[in-house]
Write a protein that binds this DNA or RNA. Structure first.
Lengths: 165, 165
DNA sequence: TTCTCCATGTTACAGAATAACAAGTCAACC
DNA sequence: GGTTGACTTGTTATTCTGTAACATGGAGAA
């Protein structure tokens, strides 16, 4: 097993979410400390909001929450906090959804593939190593060098598939 | 070679673009005829505009062109034509760019991976079969069934890489 | 203390997309 | 030939998404 294992099923199945979220927050703090970046109140709160669910939130959803809690109420407030989190690997942007989601494993593979359940809207990160290899391979045959790639899958998670049946 | 071969390098290298574009237009007409759908003037012109380059155009870029040629000048005019083309596999939407590009091989693999050159902005389609297999595989291990996937790579094409050196 | 960097907040705007409605076109059918 | 019905095109108006530019404020370094 050459790559760190990421727990996809754990996202979609019922789990102790408080622990799951607070662990991610702890890891985030540790990472930022190591990088000398500051987890200010807005940034921290933004991350907490994203961590409340395993879903993706639009920038304006986040902004509404922040504004209601006394932070600024103009778009750049949310966009800047989100951009900061993304740049430090603590959140991801989903291109298909124009939305953001918390990163559950800062530190491991920072270029995951995203699995978006069309039924419950939850998002899981999957290890994209092999997928990226296959992509680099086919691109390389055409003389194209891949630098960054967006890999987002829409489908049905295990829990929802069972519920449908 | 189990899948139809797609010519990536041919997009980025100089080539007889008139032939390349008119062939795609012919194929589009044939496809629509077979499906009983109509390639009306706006739709045809929209496709022609997309086919002028191997780049992606925003809906408003297309709209400007259409309006200048006497078609309607309101957003739905462009969005509807583009949506029609996408639904019939004659164009693709690029999520990363909020933009649209003509499909060069309607008929073959309709779920390609996209290769976007960050230098010349050209777009090539690559056969995504193996990439999708790898994705379905890693997702499947987590109990997730992939239905549709967005695969878009940003990087450097051969021609631009040589030009940089 | 003062200077500088960074963070936060604002106003104003640009860009992307859609809802809802009015009117024209065209083929099929009586 | 006229009518019906599906589809296409066009509009107005609005919503959602994202950024540029500028003013203020705080925290640490000199």
């Amino acid at each position: 097993m050459p790559r760190p294992e990421i727990d996809i099923a754990g996202v979609f199945a019922p789990h102790d979410h408080k622990t799951c979220a607070s662990r991610a927050l702890d890891e985030a703090e540790a990472r930022l400390l190591a990088e000398g970046a500051r987890l200010t109140p807005v940034r921290r709160r933004t991350l907490e909001i994203l961590l409340e669910s395993h879903r993706a939130l639009g920038a304006y959803d986040v902004l509404d929450r922040l504004a209601a809690e006394g932070f600024g109420r103009q778009p750049p407030v949310a966009y800047r906090a989100l951009e900061f989190l993304v740049q430090h690997g603590l959140a991801h942007r989903l291109q298909r959804l124009n939305a953001f989601t918390a990163c559950l494993h800062p530190g491991s593979d920072h270029n995951p593939a995203f699995l978006i359940c069309r039924s419950c809207d939850k998002i899981a990160e999957a290890n994209a190593g092999e997928v990226r290899e296959a992509l680099a391979d086919v691109a390389g045959h055409g003389g194209f060098r891949v630098e960054r790639a967006t890999i987002e899958a829409l489908g049905l998670c295990n829990a929802c598939a069972e519920a449908e049946a």
